[in-house]
Design a protein around this nucleic acid. Structure first.
Length: 460
RNA sequence: GUCGCGUUCGUCUAGUCUGGCCCAGGACCCCAGGAUUUCAUCCUGGUAACAAGAGUUCAAAUCUCUUACGCGACGCCA
């Protein structure tokens, strides 16, 4: 069994493409089949190597590995040429010399008359020797096929026209290449976006003209933006890699994407192996779905919370580098990650929270400092106690805070809050004793002293 | 315009094929309470939907028809 993902390299890998790829991948994996990656680069004007690289990067980051390919259609031109010649010689295709201008006028006229704009077959029987090559689509009858997600679809051949299969420069076009490739590559399930549904009957006619058997088709509904319009840049990030940049875990994105249009009862969380095990074509929704950042964020948080530290560290590497955080001097990073994973929605947020353990800061948050740094006495007392603390572990630090409270007859908040601010600079820190342990003795003492200096400076 | 596809809480969806268990369930968001050393987490509860109309039936979210709305295709793009 084989499925494929066949993007055209005219931009980065976007969310919609990624979901199509995921579904095709999951379907192949579920059946222990092969997943083929094919680059549809026959449009020489728009295809770029940068886009190919971007797509490969995106697939790689998501972990959707292909078993075959990537195949490039531009390297298969001989094969397409062969098929075009065959069709021509069998009188199933013909040359057409109609100018683009004539075609445009024709379209305008038909639209104005309220008819479907399609080629009129002007050159069908002229036996020309040059120009574009058009496929002789049947004039009558219906093309009916069963789509795995949409059900039975039927369209009259009268709605279809003689599509161009080769441009005037001889290069083949999409509808021809996709048929030849899916056949040659033994693809038995074609999974793609439902914007291709209208092409399917034409392709079926091509399959039939070539005497080839049909693959199964599964057309996925589109992904819409929050306003119901087709997902685009103005809805926020559409590039898969932008989600990495924003601190999402690939497995969280994958989980979100698989639930966009597919369901398995009420289950929300799917590990990669569960996706492979449970995925099916029957439970794909027919209707388009809107992309919802909030739910993705929730899933990401769930994954960060439950992920192994090793996995987090692996994914964090890029962000650490990106934000120039040097973790060589300070606590063991695994311990910090463990502390932070309960309280980070994204990896970006985690790296942000992680900075205070490795980098010193010059000043405190002004508003908070004005509020918390009023009374030097608790901080002073705590500092003297911590200075002589030998065994620098959370429990002992906590004990010193408690004693400070008791000796001064104050509540935990009176010392906890200033301490938290002193340690973090911005007040954002988890369990204060654990944080202090991780920050380390030297840095903790220095920061408490810095808080004291602040109070001295600001009291009059 | 023509053809194709679609329509369950704000969003993702279960239920639809095989009518009754659905005055419609789960999740995200939001709101209210609780636990908590800020943040976060966690727990409890709440708001909120079968696009509209007609028909079939003892019974319809589920079957049929019509309407509306949305999306897509109509390229020498894929």
């Amino acid at each position: 069994m084989k499925s494929r993902f066949a993007p055209s390299p005219t931009g980065y890998l976007h969310i919609g493409g990624a979901r199509t790829a995921l579904f095709a991948w999951a379907w192949a994996k579920k059946q222990q089949g092969q997943f083929v990656l094919r680059i549809e680069d026959t449009d020489r004007e728009r295809s770029t190597q940068a886009s190919v690289d971007a797509i490969l990067d995106g697939m790689n980051w998501l972990g959707l590995a292909h078993d075959e390919g990537p195949f490039y259609q531009t390297q298969r031109f001989d094969r397409y040429q062969e098929i075009i010649e065959q069709l021509l010689s069998e009188n199933k295709a013909y040359y057409c010399e109609c100018s683009k201008e004539r075609l445009q006028v024709l379209r305008d006229e038909l639209t104005e008359k309220g008819e479907k704009a399609k080629y009129d077959g002007c050159c069908r029987d002229k036996k020309l020797k040059s120009g574009v090559v058009r496929f002789k689509n049947p004039l009558t009858g219906f093309v009916t096929f069963k789509d795995a997600v949409k059900g039975q679809i039927s369209i009259g051949n009268q709605e279809l026209d003689d599509l161009i299969i080769a441009r005037s420069d001889g290069t083949p076009t999409y509808n021809l290449t996709v048929v030849v490739d899916d056949h040659d590559m033994d693809i038995d399930t074609v999974i793609r976006g439902d914007d291709h549904i209208n092409n399917t009957p034409r392709q079926i006619n091509l399959y039939e003209a070539l005497g080839w058997s049909l693959p199964k088709f599964a057309h996925l509904p589109m992904i819409l933006g929050s306003d119901g319009a087709r997902l685009s840049k103005r809805h926020g990030a559409v590039s898969v890699m932008a989600y990495r940049d924003e601190g999402f875990l690939p497995e969280a994105l994958l989980n979100y994407l698989v639930r966009l249009g597919w369901s398995h009862g009420d289950q929300e969380i799917f590990s990669l192996s569960e996706i492979v095990e449970l995925f099916d074509l029957e439970n794909i929704n027919k209707a388009p779905a809107s992309f919802n950042q909030e739910k993705l964020l929730w899933l990401n948080q769930e994954y960060i919370k439950t992920s192994s530290v090793e996995n987090l560290l692996k994914n964090l590497a890029w962000h650490l580098d990106n934000q120039s955080v040097d973790t060589s001097k300070g606590p063991v990073i695994e311990a910090v990650i463990k502390h932070l994973q309960e309280r980070s929605k994204t990896l970006v947020e985690m790296v942000d929270s992680l900075k205070m353990f490795y980098h010193d800061f010059d000043e405190f948050d002004k508003k908070l400092a004005a509020k918390q740094f009023k009374d030097s006495q608790p901080i002073e007392l705590l500092l003297t106690k911590l200075e002589v603390l030998d065994d620098w572990v959370a429990d002992n630090i906590k004990e010193q805070i408690k004693q400070t409270c008791e000796e001064l007859g104050i509540g935990f908040g009176k010392i906890g809050q200033p301490f938290r601010l002193a340690l973090s600079g911005n007040g954002n820190a988890g369990n204060i004793d654990v944080v202090a342990q991780l920050v380390g003795k030297d840095r903790t003492l220095a920061r408490l002293q810095m808080a004291l200096d602040y109070i001295a400076q600001h009291s009059h």
